[in-house]
C-alpha cells in the first residue's frame, strides 16, 4: 500500500515537472521578445540589457527553469497583460464557470451514456446496438463548435427553448454574490430561484452539447467493457441460481464494469475541460476556455501558460482521484 502510494506520488511529481518543462519551453521559444514588450522599441541598449537581466533572461536555462518552477509552485504565474492582475487571480475567477459547465456535461454523459452502453451490449448486433453505435459515432465526428452554433440557431433563435449565450441575462447580473462561483449553485444557496432558472436555461444547451460528446465516449467504452463481462463465468452462475437477466446485467455485470469506468470517467472529465475552450467561445461563456482564447489573441503568454498549467494540474488531480476511487468499487484493489 505504502509502496503504491509512493510510486503514484513519484509519477505525479514527474508529470508535473514534465508539464512545467513544456510550458517553460513554450515560453522561451515564443517569437515575441518579452523584453521588448516591457521596454518598448525606443529604449536604449542599456535599458534593454538591464531589464533583460532583471527578468533573468541572461541566466543559463536550467537556472531560469528552476526560478520558473519555484514561482509556479508558489502559484505565481506572473501578471496578465490584459487584466494586469495576477494570472492566478484571474484563473480562480473564471475556473468555476468552466467547472459548472463540465460537471453538468459529465453528469449528462454518464447518466445517459452508461445505460446506452449497457443496452448496446445486451442487444449486440440488433437495432438498439446499431442505433447507439451510430449515435456515438456521430458524437465522435461532430466538430463541437459547429454543433454549438447549430444548437444556438435551432434551440435558441428559432425555437426559443433555451437562453442564448452568456451565463445570465443582463437583468440578473450581480444579484447573487459568488460563493462557489457556480451561478446555479450560488443562486440556490441564496434562495434566488428566478436567477437559478435563468442560469439553468443558459447552461443547459452548452452542457448538453459537451455532454453529448462525452456520452459518445462513455457509451462506447461501457459497451465494450460490458461485452467482456457478459462472457464471464459468473454471469452463467448468477443466471443458474435463478436471477433475472435484468439483475444479472445491471447489478452483477455492471458492478464489474464500474471498476473500469472510473478511469474512463476521469479521462472524460479531462477532455470536457478541453472541449470547453471551443464551446465557451461559441457560447460566450466566461470560463477558462474563453479566457485562454482571449489571452491567445492578445499575446498574453503568462495567462496562456498559467491556464495550461492549471488544466494540466487538474488532469493530474483527476488521475489521483481515480486512483483513490478505485478501491471503493473494486474489492481486489483494497487488499493490494
Amino acid at each position: 500500500m505504502a509502496n503504491r502510494a509512493a510510486r503514484s506520488l513519484l509519477s505525479v511529481a514527474l508529470t508535473f515537472l514534465g508539464l512545467t518543462c513544456v510550458t517553460f519551453f513554450i515560453g522561451r521559444v515564443i517569437p515575441i521578445d518579452p523584453v521588448l514588450a516591457i521596454v518598448g522599441d525606443k529604449a536604449s541598449a542599456e535599458t534593454y540589457a538591464r531589464v533583460r537581466a532583471e527578468i533573468g533572461l541572461d541566466l543559463p536555462l536550467p537556472v531560469q527553469y528552476w526560478r520558473y518552477l519555484t514561482k509556479v509552485l508558489h502559484g505565481d504565474f506572473g501578471n496578465s497583460v490584459i487584466t494586469s492582475r495576477p494570472v492566478l487571480h484571474d484563473l480562480l475567477q473564471v475556473f468555476p464557470a468552466t467547472l459548472e459547465l463540465a460537471l453538468l456535461a459529465l453528469l449528462i454523459g454518464v447518466v445517459a451514456g452508461v445505460p446506452m452502453g449497457v443496452i448496446a451490449a445486451t442487444h449486440r448486433g440488433r437495432w438498439q446496438d446499431q442505433v447507439i453505435r451510430f449515435l456515438s459515432l456521430l458524437g465522435y465526428s461532430m466538430p463541437v463548435f459547429w454543433l454549438g452554433l447549430i444548437g444556438l440557431l435551432l434551440f435558441y433563435a428559432k425555437l426559443g427553448w433555451v437562453e442564448g449565450p452568456g451565463r445570465l441575462d443582463v437583468a440578473f447580473d450581480d444579484i447573487v454574490g459568488p460563493v462557489t462561483g457556480m451561478v446555479t449553485i450560488d443562486s440556490l444557496l441564496a434562495g434566488e430561484y428566478e436567477v437559478f432558472w435563468n442560469a439553468f436555461w443558459h447552461l443547459l444547451l452548452p452542457a448538453s452539447i459537451l455532454g453529448y460528446l462525452s456520452l459518445a465516449y462513455v457509451a462506447r467504452m461501457t459497451r465494450s467493457f460490458m461485452l467482456a463481462q457478459l462472457r464471464q463465468e459468473y454471469v452463467l452462475a448468477t443466471l443458474a441460481k435463478g436471477l433475472s437477466p435484468w439483475r444479472v446485467v445491471w447489478v452483477h455485470a455492471l458492478g464489474n464494469v464500474w471498476v473500469q469506468l472510473v478511469t474512463v470517467i476521469a479521462l472524460t472529465f479531462g477532455s470536457l475541460l478541453e472541449g470547453a475552450v471551443l464551446t465557451e467561445t461559441v457560447f460566450a461563456w466566461p470560463g477558462l476556455g474563453l479566457y485562454m482564447k482571449n489571452s491567445l489573441f492578445n499575446a498574453d503568454l503568462n495567462a496562456v501558460l498559467g491556464a495550461t498549467v492549471l488544466v494540466g494540474v487538474v488532469y493530474i488531480g483527476l488521475n489521483m482521484i481515480s486512483d483513490l476511487i478505485y478501491p471503493l468499487v473494486d474489492p481486489r484493489a483494497r487488499d493490494q
Binding site: A237, L239, G242, V259, P331
Partner: peptide, 25 residues
C-alpha cells in the same frame, strides 16, 4: 426456467475464481 433455476435445479461450475462475482461479498 427462471423460476426453476436455483429453486429446483442448480448448477456448480468448474472454477470458483471465475464463477463468483468478484465485486460482491
Amino acid at each position: 426456467f427462471r423460476k426453476l433455476r436455483g429453486q429446483r435445479i442448480a448448477m456448480v461450475l468448474q472454477d470458483p475464481k471465475y464463477s463468483l462475482d468478484p465485486v460482491m461479498s
